[in-house]
């Protein structure tokens, strides 16, 4: 097999890790709160800026910068819920979609206002590994490993803790969880916080690989929705697998053509698949 193709495939798998992490966050929020955060990728953008400024500008040690970003974005997630989602919880689903769409608009423009449209890089150069003449970016490898760890941690949390069980239960019967002593509003806040923390974690991993600019969310935001829908909205395991399917299409497509066309392939694949399986790849 062509060595460069193999390299593309491996990088695709590694990219899939981060996308899977983001899909997990979005699916968690959708599964529990029943709202699609159109602005999810832009919240990741906020995290990337936070890391950039903390580390590159104010010379906070990188691990500490990461930690602050994760906590900060988790808090942002909670604020988004409190101020934007909570008021429209009983509105038509399209209003909810649009409220977060308005936030997308706001975040992108506000970032432009504050930071301009320059591309900024935190300037951490991680080595490129060479394994049997295949080049693999170390940053991607780390990202992949951390994304997997994050996913497993989330799984354990959902499986083993009371709150985690309540989170899984609430999407199955929203009304009856109250009878178990579960405060729905509190669960929503916890979930928004976790969704934010996952976005913050993804921001750390992406900041190692990409420049940050106000519109970076537009490049991978739509891909994340697509992954979630493909896996079945709210189905976390489905989304996790779909992330790797899509990232492979993007990686291999990019190898044979251009980056944009590889995304065109991925989106087209998605549209066609929706016709074959309208409720996602893994719907029963």
């Amino acid at each position: 097999m062509d060595i460069y193709l193999l390299e593309a495939i491996i990088n695709g798998i590694l990219l899939g890790g981060v996308l899977a992490l983001l899909a997990l966050g979005l699916n968690l929020i959708f599964g529990v709160i029943d709202v699609v955060w159109i602005c999810y990728a832009d919240i990741v953008m906020c995290g990337m800026y936070a890391i950039f400024f903390l580390y590159a500008q104010y010379h906070v040690p990188l691990p500490l910068a990461f930690l602050i970003a994760i906590i900060g974005i988790a808090a942002l997630g909670i604020l988004v819920h409190l101020f934007i989602i909570a008021p429209v919880l009983d509105s038509a689903p399209i209003n909810q979609l649009l409220a977060t769409g308005g936030l997308l608009f706001f975040l992108q423009s506000f970032a432009t206002l504050l930071f301009g449209t320059d591309f900024r890089n935190i300037g951490v150069r991680l080595p490129v590994l060479e394994v049997a003449t295949i080049y693999v970016s170390f940053a991607r490898l780390i990202a992949f490993a951390v994304a997997l760890i994050g996913a497993v941690a989330l799984y354990v949390f959902l499986k083993r803790t009371y709150i985690g069980t309540a989170i899984r239960a609430i999407s199955q019967d929203r009304e009856i969880v109250g009878l178990m002593g579960v405060d729905q509003r509190r669960i929503y806040l916890v979930v928004s916080g976790i969704g934010g923390a996952l976005a913050g974690l993804a921001a750390c991993l992406l900041a190692l690989q990409y420049d940050v600019h106000p519109f970076i969310g537009n490049t991978f935001g739509p891909v994340i929705f697509m992954i979630c829908v493909l896996g079945g909205l709210g189905n976390m395991i489905g989304g996790f697998i779909a992330a790797f399917v899509i990232s492979q299409i993007i990686a291999i497509g990019g190898y044979y053509s251009s980056t944009e066309l590889s995304y065109v392939f991925a989106f087209t694949f998605f549209i066609v698949l929706m016709f074959i399986r309208p409720r996602g790849l893994f719907a029963p």
Binding site: R168, A169, I176
Partner: peptide, 17 residues
């Protein structure tokens, strides 16, 4: 009104929330 996709024991656990 059980939580159909949770196991029996998980249903019981959430009863003890």
């Amino acid at each position: 009104r059980l939580f159909p996709r949770l196991s029996v024991e998980e249903n019981l656990r959430i009863g003890a929330f």
